[in-house]
């Protein structure tokens, strides 16, 4: 093994050890969430008509009938567009928190910077490991949905699962870049995570009316990160909001570049 690859492996292992508790928590939450929503669906289908009898005043939302009859739409509505997406957002922020500025707050920056590794390499390995962990969360989500669907005997297309988890992972990687950027700006051990989570929460709150079918302009659609992560209910590539994906990737790339710049030029 060359000295360079030994250094890369050591830094990757460091990043993994640093984030493994966050990753494990994310994995448990995502697996439980996916399994629960799939396994509880038969119970929901039984319960909903009873609820209607008990509460005749309830008005059916536009998607109501379809969640009963269209299983992929059910999954898209409750998981890819809602709970799973929010879980990915939270864990992307948490997995992305790190880097030299945080190590200053943590007290380990001097040790890290005494090692013969460039600051660019330090951040690159950190970002790569976080992206790999996010992708692994995506694989876990897709696998859990596919396996539990098979378990309850409901046919479900792997293409649908892969397309939507890929969109979730892509969106999470953009948030990851934002989180790394935030970690290079906001000082403190926990402050970047708190600011990042507050930002994600606020963004979801502001965008909620558009996600529920409110009026949108082209610009809002392009910046509608929630929609980028969920796409449309179908499984065709035509359902992917490509403009939003391109804008999100561009913003993510800028955030990452800024994080690299801050890391390379800062005093620690």
């Amino acid at each position: 093994m060359s000295a360079r690859s030994a250094v890369w492996r050591a830094l990757s292992r460091k990043a993994w050890l640093e984030t493994r508790a966050r990753f494990a928590t994310g994995a448990v939450v995502i697996v439980l969430l996916c399994a629960f929503m799939v396994l509880v669906r038969p119970r929901m289908l039984v319960q909903w008509p009873l609820d209607k009898i008990l509460h005749p005043e309830w008005r059916d939302p536009p998607w109501w009938d379809r969640v009963h009859t269209d299983y992929p739409f059910f999954l898209w509505h409750y998981l890819y567009r809602d709970m799973l997406q929010k879980a990915f957002m939270v864990f992307a922020v948490l997995l992305g928190v790190g880097g030299l500025a945080r190590e200053v707050a943590y007290g380990t920056a001097a040790f890290t910077l005494s090692l013969p590794a460039s600051r660019r390499l330090l951040l690159a390995t950190r970002a790569t490991v976080a992206a790999a962990e996010t992708a692994a969360l995506g694989v876990l989500a897709a696998a859990t949905i596919l396996l539990t669907s098979a378990f309850i005997g409901v046919p479900y297309s792997a293409a649908h699962a892969l397309l939507h988890t890929a969109l979730l992972v892509l969106g999470a990687c953009v948030l990851l870049a934002g989180s790394l950027c935030l970690s290079s700006i906001v000082e403190g051990e926990h402050a970047p995570a708190l600011v990042g989570l507050a930002g994600v929460g606020m963004f979801n709150y502001i965008m909620a009316p558009y996600a529920d079918g409110g009026p949108t302009s082209g610009l809002v659609r392009a910046l509608d990160f929630v929609h980028v992560m969920s796409g449309s209910p179908g499984e065709s590539l035509a359902d992917v909001p490509w403009t939003g994906v391109a804008v999100s990737l561009g913003i993510g790339a800028l955030a990452l570049l800024y994080a690299f710049r801050r890391s390379e030029t800062g005093d620690f």
């Binding site: 050890l17 640093e18 508790a21 380990t108 040790f111 005494s114």
Partner: peptide, 13 residues
């Protein structure tokens, strides 16, 4: 080789 004044090391290792 350098030993810093603040000798905190990676707690997760």
């Amino acid at each position: 080789a350098y030993v810093a004044e603040d000798k905190r090391l990676f707690d997760y290792m």
